[in-house]
Amino acid sequence: MLKYTLSRLLTFIPTFIGVTLISFSFIRALPGDPIVVMAGERGLSDERYAELATQYGFDQPIYMQFWDYLTGVLQGDLGTSFVTKRPVWDEFFTLFPATLELSICAMIFAIALGLPAGIIAAVNRGKFLDRALMSTALVGYSMPIFWWALLLIIVFSGNLGWTPVSGRIDLLYYFPNATGFMLIDSVASGQSGAFTSAVRHLLLPTIVLGTIPLAVIARQTRSAMLEVLGEDYIRTARAKGMSPGRINGVHALRNAMIPVITVIGLSVGTLLAGAILTETIFSWPGIGKWMVDSIFRRDYPVVQGGLLLIAVMVMIVNLTVDMLYGVINPKIRKR
């Protein structure tokens, strides 16, 4: 297991360098000069421009700039935002809990509904319930996030007035963010109504962000369950006189979890991409919104560093998923 983990960690190195290179070139491939953007409408003199260019290293050849960036990254220095002058690292960790909270809630939502939906569909294969669930999943999967979010906002915030449209909590409440997780901080603050407000703010973004993973998980669970239910060991479990509930929920599900966990792991990447849109729509102060804002401001260090950190997160999640395979089905560990 340890050897396996180490070998997996080694494969991180080329991926890491690749991601560094891509994030570095991506923002530079966009038209627009960060110094000009920073100067805004006032403009700036040629001397001042040259001075700033030297300060940020833009006078260097591009490969030297990359080298400086790479060596910085390897020493744990992601640079400083052009705009806020704060280290990228600090900004990331201030904003990341908001994204993490939203993503975790969306994932819990997707798993909590997707897994049972997939199991129910598989057990009722070909019947009405199966068809209904799977067509709903297909609709959910093909729904554009933007459109879906607006629809929910119109119905629940507009017509019904149940949920707020933006932010993480009512302006009424103020407390220091100890953990950065609004659900925890609001309880810790002891202010009555704060937690409810946080939950109501989370509701729509969670549903919007969780819908596609929910559909993917439901469909994958169904097909994995169908495959597993045809296996010999399921017949053995039935020959032992086990109840359908136990057979589906224990004997089959454990085996079906392998492909399901794979899609859950892969969904994390999709989730972070979805977070960018969702956060923008709901003005959610997380790294998604931060990345979008920084791209518009041509804030090179933030875009580079942010992308890199997001990529590392995804890699860690995938590694964890790989490790889980062996825990769920020891046969896989042997390979």
Binding site: E231, R235, T236, A237, A239, R254, N255, N329
Partner: peptide, 14 residues
């Protein structure tokens, strides 16, 4: 009780 032809696949790998 009943036992089957393929002992390998008749037992749950998990």
């Amino acid at each position: 009780a009943m036992i089957f032809q393929e002992p390998m696949s008749s037992l749950n790998p998990c």
